[in-house]
Write a protein that binds this DNA or RNA. Structure first.
Lengths: 266, 266
DNA sequence: AGCGATTGTCTCTTACAAGAGACGTGTGTA
DNA sequence: TACACACGTCTCTTGTAAGAGACAATCGCT
């Protein structure tokens, strides 16, 4: 292929490398993998590349893509042979949102919070055991790059991650993080015990602040949203410059915690 | 079951009734049907009802639902044995929106338009051959019920429908509407030829106004959004009380057409 | 023009998923 | 208490979908 853009690689076969044999895979699973793959890459992908990226047979991939396109879950991208998400997924997604109070209200809360403070604000949830930014509102600072919505980030990298695990015991926490998750983007290694201590502290104080974790220039303030007493369903967070004054940080945190609490009743 | 709420019925086997035989169905198709069924009913549904509603074997349905829940496309609804759309679908849907300029800008345009005019405004597109409200913004009138986002409505019932078909020839149009589509909600029957004339007129004038079509109290103003010269990709429309004055209607229409045109460049 | 790589379609085989149905349990009602 | 009817899980069979691979058509490069 003329384009050698990198594709997010795919766990070729779960645990220990390579096919157990030329084993067959259920069509539905292949289809789900396609969606997941597109989501991970966040752009239209050629069918050939799709097959390659998923270690799926080409013929099967063509068939599946055709079916998914007919169903409207995928659409052929403008230029011709690439595919990306389709309108149906948007419609289903909106239906999900309409049916989900926490999400609907959380989005609003996040939007107003970022408008009021001028800072980037986000709503985060656990999604299949990973930290996910469900909604984010950019804030008004000149340079504020927030990671894209829907991206999955290792729990230990974030303040929200510490709150989201607050309900679990040690075993539960260990099950949620892999060895790799404890390695920060800059290469530093986090100790599992430190992480667990952080979580305990977060549970007690009812908030969490991390500095320079996911990148060196930002501080992350997070507050829990409860769906039931003790059960953290989501978090709201603010992403601010790391040199934000103690005082302003305190103010923002108070505001954030108030808004998160307001969401919690539900 | 103790609840006898009506479920949107399912075309048991396409054209002429009933199974060709105890034929097997591909898992992926069953899964797609589940999604479509949930979308049609807009609420969580029990697995048993799902199987019944789709004429699918119970055992298969259980398996599929389990897989879809694991994948995050479905979620068990709060009370226990019902399922509805899952978070993953929301994430995929947002990804679709981010990747789709027209949709993203169209939503904004619709929101501002309805804020400025106080009327209900909608963005509509063709979705697998049917008219679909992709986004709607409620307006400020006391009683304005707009049909839910994502619902599929027969093309001949709407002003937008006439514009969306403006690019097609007679054959193309006939292929898009069934006999049933020509019967209005109140029972009146539309003539196919009249409908085709409407479409031709809409193409020439560049807008379309219908009165009391889908219900007796509203007028619908629609303007086309072009993705390429002559190709109608979407429509913007305003839903106003049927007794809106000629003058105000004219003003609103002008504003609407201007905004739709602004979207069209793309 | 000649070569290698990629695309999209098709055919054929067989591993396996879809489905029928039985089972145990729970729940409402007669 | 007994009945009818849901739910959720399991087992076994067989129809068929997943996959291997061959094919012609295009594309990009030299």
């Amino acid at each position: 292929m003329q384009e050698s853009e990198t594709l997010t690689e795919w766990p070729s076969d779960g645990a220990d490398e390579e096919r157990p044999t030329g084993s067959r895979e259920k069509g539905l699973n292949r289809a789900l993998n396609i969606l997941e793959f597109l989501h991970a890459n966040q752009r239209a992908i050629g069918i050939g590349d799709l097959a390659k990226g998923l270690n799926a047979p080409r013929s099967t991939t063509y068939t599946l893509v055709r079916e998914l396109v007919e169903a409207g879950l995928l659409e052929m991208a403008g230029d011709g042979n690439r595919v990306y998400f389709g309108k149906k997924l948007y419609l289903y997604g909106m239906a999900y949102m309409r049916g989900n109070d926490l999400l609907r209200r959380g989005r609003q809360e996040v939007d107003t919070l970022s408008r009021e403070t001028g800072e980037t604000s986000e709503l985060c949830m656990l999604q299949s055991g990973r930290y996910t930014i469900v909604h984010s509102s950019p804030g008004t600072r000149p340079f504020r790059i927030s990671s894209a919505t829907g991206l999955q980030i290792p729990l230990p990298w974030t303040a929200s991650g510490r709150l989201l695990l607050a309900g679990l015991d040690r075993g539960g926490i260990e099950a949620m993080v892999t060895r790799d998750d404890l390695v920060l983007p800059d290469g530093r290694k986090l100790e599992l015990d430190d992480f667990i201590d952080d979580i305990a502290r977060a549970r007690i104080t009812g908030y969490c602040v991390t500095s320079g974790l996911v990148d060196a220039y930002t501080k992350c303030l997070a507050a829990p949203v409860f769906s039931a007493p003790g059960k953290v369903e989501a978090t709201m967070c603010l992403v601010v410059p790391i040199d934000t004054s103690e005082e302003r940080t305190g103010e923002l945190l108070a505001l954030l915690r108030e808004r998160a609490a307001r969401l919690s009743i539900s």
